Computed example of a mutant assay.
Amino acid sequence: MIRKAFIMTVYPDKHEEYEQRHNEIWPEMVDELHKHGAKNYSIFLDKETSKLFGYLEIEDEEIWSQMAATSINQKWWEYMEPVMETNPDKSPVSLDLKEVFHMD
């Protein structure tokens, strides 16, 4: 299992909207995440900074890297663009974090 962690930013006035959209995540998006090996996926919000901390476990980097190109993922990015910082391709601005410690 490969552990991945990353930081994104939600707009300060969109915290509740961001959470609501994830509470109502589309079943087909969840299915696609599972197909691409995602497990144990969580996102946390620091309300003071509007920073999001994401964590997930994947089975294979190559399979996971194909998730971004799926039509449902592209649709999700477009849906989320109004509530968070995004790149020109509508993907979230994201900073990958390096694991420096893990304990089972």
Score class of each variant (00 low, 15 high):
26 W>L: 15
65 S>I: 02
52 L>H: 04
12 P>N: 04
6 F>D: 06
96 D>W: 01
28 E>R: 07
44 F>G: 04
69 A>E: 14
17 E>G: 01
55 Y>R: 02
74 Q>A: 11
81 E>M: 06
71 S>N: 11
34 H>Y: 11
75 K>D: 07
88 P>G: 05
6 F>W: 09
35 K>H: 14
80 M>K: 00
25 I>F: 14
42 S>N: 08
50 S>T: 04
25 I>L: 15
37 G>D: 12
5 A>H: 03
98 K>R: 12
80 M>E: 04
42 S>C: 02
67 M>C: 09
16 E>T: 13
74 Q>M: 09
57 E>S: 06
25 I>M: 14
91 S>T: 14
99 E>K: 07
75 K>I: 00
68 A>N: 10
10 V>F: 06
77 W>K: 07
53 F>E: 04
43 I>L: 05
73 N>Q: 11
13 D>G: 02
58 I>V: 15
73 N>F: 01
27 P>S: 15
40 N>K: 13
24 E>F: 05
64 W>E: 15
25 I>S: 12
37 G>R: 06
83 V>N: 02
57 E>G: 06
37 G>Q: 11
4 K>P: 05
1 M>D: 02
104 D>L: 07
66 Q>E: 15
58 I>Q: 02
98 K>W: 02
35 K>V: 05
102 H>R: 08
21 R>Q: 14
71 S>L: 09
74 Q>D: 02
27 P>T: 13
95 L>I: 12
78 E>G: 01
24 E>Y: 09
17 E>R: 04
26 W>F: 12
11 Y>S: 07
43 I>N: 01
34 H>M: 11
44 F>H: 13
51 K>A: 12
1 M>F: 06
64 W>P: 03
92 P>F: 09
99 E>D: 05
100 V>T: 11
4 K>V: 12
70 T>F: 00
27 P>I: 13
90 K>R: 14
99 E>R: 02
20 Q>Y: 08
35 K>W: 02
10 V>I: 12
21 R>Y: 08
11 Y>T: 07
29 M>R: 11
64 W>F: 12
38 A>K: 08
71 S>E: 15
2 I>L: 14
32 E>H: 06
88 P>L: 14
33 L>N: 01
102 H>K: 08
29 M>D: 07
89 D>Q: 01
44 F>L: 08
103 M>G: 01
27 P>Q: 13
100 V>A: 07
64 W>D: 08
78 E>H: 11
104 D>S: 10
11 Y>D: 10
80 M>V: 01
32 E>G: 03
39 K>S: 13
11 Y>P: 04
71 S>M: 07
34 H>N: 14
65 S>M: 07
100 V>I: 14
94 S>Y: 00
6 F>I: 00
17 E>K: 10
101 F>Q: 00
12 P>E: 05
96 D>Q: 12
70 T>S: 08
46 D>F: 07
102 H>Q: 08
24 E>C: 12
25 I>V: 15
5 A>W: 01
3 R>Y: 06
76 W>N: 03
2 I>S: 07
25 I>E: 13
82 P>T: 10
92 P>L: 09
20 Q>M: 12
65 S>Q: 10
29 M>I: 15
59 E>S: 14
31 D>V: 12
14 K>H: 03
41 Y>V: 11
71 S>C: 01
81 E>P: 01
86 T>I: 14
40 N>R: 14
70 T>G: 05
81 E>S: 15
62 E>H: 09
79 Y>S: 09
20 Q>C: 03
